[in-house]
Design a protein around this nucleic acid. Sequence first.
RNA 1: GUGCCUGUAGUUCAGCGGUGGAACGCCGGACUGUGGCUCCGGAUGACGUGGGUUCGAAUCCCACCAGGCACCCCA
Length: 424
Amino acid sequence: MIKAIRGTRDLLPPDTALWNFVETTARAVFREYNFQEIRTPIFEATELFARGVGEDTDIVSKEMYTFEDRSRAESDKGQSLTLRPENTAGVVRAYIEHNLWDRGLNKLYYIGPQFRRERPQKGRYRQFYQIGAEVIGPTTAGSESPARDAEVLEMLATLLNRLGIQGWTLQLNSVGCANDRPRYVEALREALRPVVGQMCVDCRRRAETNPLRVLDCKVPEDQPIIEKLPRMKDYLDESCRQHFAEVQKILNTAGVPYSLNDRLVRGLDYYTRTAFEFTHGALGAQNAILGGGRYDGLSEAIGGPKAPGIGFAIGEDRLVLSLTEAAETVAPKPDAYIAPLGPGMNAEAVKLARDLRRAGAIVEVGDETFRLKKSLETASKLGTRYAIILGENEAKSNEFALKNLATGQQQTVPRGELAAKLRA
RNA sequence: GUGCCUGUAGUUCAGCGGUGGAACGCCGGACUGUGGCUCCGGAUGACGUGGGUUCGAAUCCCACCAGGCACCCCA
């Protein structure tokens, strides 16, 4: 049997109704904040991700679906292409390519699949879906303002609340900028040198490859050591410090709850200053339902003008997962099941169904060869509210037997009044 | 990519060397134009795939594939 490949899956009803609910709600909230939709290609030049996301990140170094395109000339090598592992780089590429700021566009959102070749796990798939948004523009547009950070965070809180998600936590940190972070990393390296020998094997490796990751370690024995390491907040330069303080001040005023976590580091190279994560307790190890932050240098890193930005990506798969526990799925049930009885009644049934549907009803139609018993049984199974019996008598008199399947009550209704009765 | 656990009917699972089962669901009948309840009957399936051990394998062993949990990392 041919099956969906590892890490991919089919989304089936009734779950698809939930996905649509999430997407519809997100679009509505984004709309209120004046974001507009952008759709970028699902694959891009590999170079975009190498330069944008960062050559040394896990995503780029070992998780990308990369392939060589066919070349036109036999002698030429095909271009290296990659299925997008995230969407921010693509949006920024489009921003540069189409001079979006000159068209008055600086708040964009996207919804779509992304691809990373990781080992699948609950809440982690090789084709997964992200809902994200970006604020990006020249400095003169205020895109560097802490008000943008706070506005984005407040929008996310609004969205999660409107989706009915209970018990989320916003973790907030500042990871500094190109100016102060190298100094911090250096300080961290030095502080680690004498103590790293006492730490877990992972930390010993991280101390070499990416010292910031040591802060993320969850091994209990390492915690006392980590507590004593230097902290980013003590190394922020004046502008970063003020920026971060201002973000917090606005969040306090707006009533958005958050907790500071100076061990929150992000895995993508392009993040600067504000970094954040919304987590949800009921998701196991993959507890981050969304993450994001500021990326003031990304545009320049991929050859564009200076264009500070801030954005986030929601893991839609995880969001839906945290939703299925609380929310009952509301798949719409048909309003009526038409049971045609006997030769020639199919045609009448389809015509009647068309008229009722035009009046706004959800209608299911049986078949004239079905016995009435079977039709009613099917209608009950579908959860339909009414059954309409359409036999020769009804066709002649133009009055139909309308049966309420919940109460069992049945009445005779003239054709013209059927739609109104269904709505009642 | 690493470690551990798990793959048996549409679903949830029992069976753990000797002719593959239960519940629910599905189909039909009792009941030829009246469902839900009840009763009766029926079909389920390469026991994840391939190899090995054995007189004999769903059961034991190996490899692969897939899922779950944790790590790594991330949404």
